[in-house]
Nucleic acid binder design. Sequence first.
DNA 1: ATGGTGATGACCT
DNA 2: GGTCATCACCATA
Length: 213
Amino acid sequence: MTDNSIKAVKAFFDDRPTEVIAADCLGRKLIYDGPKGTVAAYIVEAEAYLGEQDSTAHAYQGRRTSSVEPLYGQPGTVYIYSIHGRYLFDVVTQRKDVPQGILIRAGEPCAGIEIMEQNRSKHGVNLTNGPGKLMEAFGIHDMKMNQLFVNACPIRMDLDHRLIPSQVATGARIGVNQSGPSAQLPLRFYVAGNPYVSGMLKRNTLANNGWQK
DNA sequence: ATGGTGATGACCT
DNA sequence: GGTCATCACCATA
């Protein structure tokens, strides 16, 4: 976690539409330096949340309570929240006071798989094919990193080495409030055919897990 | 006291 | 393997 990588990550999460950033996260390596060792996964699914004008977003209509305050921080700020007794991991996009962000929903493990199996008591796709599962696999089960900064805390993104999806698929976001106007927007992005995408059916998986060769 | 951006296991095919 | 009802967790109010 050098100053350089902090700068790079901040630039990555700034100055582009949030949906572009979400799609560009696919294939990026998410790393966590935890107490049991280093674990990492290639991001295979991410969703964009467009803040004040997005009826599914925590900051809809400018809602600004202490719980959503991290969303108003610098690009690259970590926003962790709990739901259904799980912890979900977001990264803030856009400049300060523009409360947009992306939710990382799933990843393909690439390091520390034994640690993840231990943390999850599961194996295979069930390790990381959901937002809560991914965090549990990483061994993150509190909000200590909430409001910290990617690459300046034990969660890092490696922007130098990545996989390229053969095809990026889009769809409506999962589990969002259906009552508002934004519910059906195609702001969910995932690697087509990757078995670690949440809800991915076996019959729809592709060769090479949907990555370019 | 409340409710939500999930996950599980039972049951069916 | 796929579908669905049910679960209880914890942060916030």
